[in-house]
């Protein structure tokens, strides 16, 4: 259905170093942009994600209110378009009289940091272990695989809640809890791919040329797997963000004084009858971000790795 097919694996398998591969990436950047254009949803998704990132970085500059302290006299000001609303607080204020829009903008920092860092470190740990165990097998493989199987026996959220229950709330703890189980999926993906790529001709050829096994892994095989990892990573950022918000909602994630969407929604829940906006808007912000990330991820999958079949 695509007019310009993405670079296919067989051609890649002939390419022998990251450097050539990088050059190819540059040359195919045009093709990639073109692919992005014919996947308009992916384009829109990535633009929205970039806007969120900008908002998170510039939050102190583009807001006028203090995100952590408010004036109680302003509490429960409704959104500007409602009766009694004012454009000073476009989306209204919460129980402590803090501006909701300001807190939402600052809250995007937590979501993006937690999602990005948790997925980034999960990829690092998972891919490294997966590449080593998938290529060398042996004792390390059986130990790590057993451990991964064990972690898979826990549903993700239950596991994160359990860990947070024991180590206590906090942003570092939260990221650690997410990584603790998050690496497993990347590990399994890379390990599986590594095992199947390992027996292909181009690896045999590299071996025959006297290449060391470590450089075969890094220079030959990893470039062929990286697209799948990248796509899976994008799709998992959204999940991690929802996970963070869920934990914060339960009071197990980010401490309540720091603006985070999950805890904002939780605090609004108590005032649902008098101030519907306190829960609603952080949720919409969260929904749009996760939606944009997922759309981007799906688009990237179509463009970069049509073979990959990930569900859920």
């Amino acid at each position: 259905m695509d007019i310009t097919p993405p670079i296919t694996k067989p051609t890649l398998s002939l390419i022998h170093s990251w450097r050539i591969r990088l050059k190819l990436w540059k040359r195919s950047a045009k093709e990639f942009l073109y692919d992005l254009l014919i996947h308009p949803t992916a384009l829109i998704g990535s633009i929205i994600v970039i806007l969120y990132i900008l908002a998170a970085i510039l939050a102190p500059q583009i807001t006028v209110h203090n995100p952590e302290n408010g004036n109680l006299r302003n509490r429960f000001t409704p959104p500007a378009w409602e009766k009694d609303g004012t454009w000073e607080f476009p989306l209204g204020t919460d129980a402590q009289g803090r501006d909701l829009l300001t807190r939402i903008l600052f809250g995007s920092r937590i979501s993006l940091i937690v999602g990005g860092v948790a997925v980034g470190i999960s990829i690092l740990i998972g891919s490294t272990l997966g590449a080593l165990t998938g290529y060398y097998r042996g004792k390390l493989d059986s130990i790590v695989s057993r451990f991964a199987d064990l972690l898979l026996a826990f549903p993700f959220l239950i596991f994160a809640i359990g860990v947070m229950a024991f180590i206590g709330p906090g942003i570092t703890n939260l990221i650690m809890a997410l990584i603790f189980k998050g690496w497993v999926e990347f590990f399994r993906l890379v390990r599986g791919e590594m095992m199947s790529e390992k027996s292909k001709e181009y690896v045999e050829a590299a071996k025959a040329n006297g290449m060391g096994s470590l450089s075969i892994i890094v220079k030959e095989i990893l470039p062929n797997i990286i697209n799948s990892v990248f796509v899976l990573g994008t799709l998992r950022i959204g999940d991690m963000i929802i996970m963070e918000a869920s934990l914060s909602f339960l009071g197990l994630g980010i401490p309540p004084h720091i603006p985070a969407w999950g805890s904002m929604i939780a605090s609004g829940r108590d005032y649902m009858l008098v101030a519907w906006w306190v829960s609603t808007f952080p949720g919409i912000a969260l929904l749009i971000l996760v939606l944009a990330i997922n759309i981007t991820g799906e688009g990237l999958r179509d463009i970069l790795d049509p073979r990959l079949k990930l569900e859920g």
């Binding site: 909602f249 649902m272 519907w276 829960s279 609603t280 949720g283 939606l291 997922n294 759309i295």
Partner: peptide, 22 residues
Amino acid sequence: SFLGISMPSFWFGIILILLFGV
């Protein structure tokens, strides 16, 4: 279904409460 996948369940629950209950 994309919306369903991207929606945090606790927020969806609150919205349903607001709509159907409140």
